[in-house]
Design a protein around this nucleic acid. Sequence first.
DNA 1: ATGGCTGCAGGATGCAGA
Length: 260
Amino acid sequence: MRIATWNINGIRARLEGAVQWTSEVRPDILCFQEIKIEDAAFPRSAFEDLGYNVETLGQKSFNGVALLSKLPFDEVSRGLPGDDADSQARFIEGVFSISGGAIRVASLYLPNGNPVGTDKFTYKFAWMDRLEAYAKARLAAEEMFVFAGDYNVIPEPIDARYPEHWVEDALFQPETRMRYRRLLNLGLTCAFRACSSEPGYYSFWDYQAGAWQRNNGIRIDHQLLSPLAADRLRGAQIDKRTRSWDKPSDHVPVMIELDV
DNA sequence: ATGGCTGCAGGATGCAGA
């Protein structure tokens, strides 16, 4: 089973490339972030025509996440537990039947948090704390799960071409990295880092200042696996080809292969 | 990066992103 996550930065603006990539790569499950569209306007038929079931948690203009799956959804739930007052569309998950059990897959868009010291920064940490609590609950149930998405976290200096550019940024603050490590220390596995300890792999390049041409990137899109999922991990890849396409997203797809 | 792009809402520019 292949699972991909891709911050698409506006599905309306990216539809042609997204459909092309999906029909070529054909992941079993595809997680989108920043669809920037309401549920009713999501171009679901473009993906249904490729054989996908489509579930979204959309929002006008900002945020918005989607889950596309070749397998039928046994369950869908929208929103990260822990704060009923949170109206930002940043989390959707589905449960799918596989041989011998079930797998839960979430598409998440963790808050950016900039500028540091503002209410956005506070919201990022609150959201990360809720994600930790939710992961803890799912781990206690001994579930096979994959939390895939745009974490807006640069975990380590090797995950940035120029780490010194990011020391003032919410994505690389000590408290941000600490919370990400706390997630890992629950027993989750970063699929990409389980497969490669090499520097130079990024999932985002800014539109500005020739970041792509200079390979000034950061690795902020991750797939975290529960132990039962990590046991099945065969490989992980970043598909940076899409960043050189016409009208690209500033993020590229991150994929994993599970032996299920 | 002192933010040089980009998408979106709306119908001019302002906001958000990372």
